[in-house]
Amino acid sequence: MIRVNSLAHVYDKGRRLKFPCWEIGDMEQWLLLGASGSGKSTLLNIISGLLKPSQGAVLINGTDLYNLPVRGLDRFRGRHIGIIFQRPHLIRSLDVLDNLELAAVMAGLPIDHERNRSLLADLGIGDLAKNYPDQLSQGQLQRVSVARALVNKPDLLIADEPTSSLDDENANQVIKMLTTQAKDNGAALIIATHDARVRDHLTKTYLL
């Protein structure tokens, strides 16, 4: 269960961004909608523990994120939150499988080779395990980053505009994968987007 309480954030020389209260139950799937510049990315960064809000608190399963020490927050994020960015951001010097293993290593968890293989297979990129990011297409890269977000069995999966650089077919597939994988892995899901193609897949919406 995730709770966002009277959050507000002010960037240096920016206007004040206020976020309404938000409660997300276990395994619920939400759309985060809003005009460009309304603060969607800002809110997701705050929920992922990447950006300390000027005011308010984020509670994930009872843990107040910004009450944790810096190291504890990094560790919590690694173990409980899977993040998918608009751009895949894979490590270019490592192959696909190593990129997945990196997620476990950085979170201080043991590597589960079997799970990594089956994740790639489920996402239809099982035969790309030994390829390097430079050798993959945008759609394939985004699938790898979905797989990487799932490696540590997170409680919460966060995706910021995961489909904006993909064509219709890839966008559809990635969204389908996100929703089914979130369900299969028992994770709650938040997708921020202004992509109309995404809206049909999820029912719950949070508007900024």
């Binding site: 990447l50 810096v70 990094d74 994020r77 951001h89 894979l90 490590i91 990196l102 997620a103 950085m106």
Partner: peptide, 16 residues
Amino acid sequence: KYDLAIMRCLGASKPK
């Protein structure tokens, strides 16, 4: 910078 930010995102601490 991007690689290191990703690693932070995946749970690595600054000292690491």
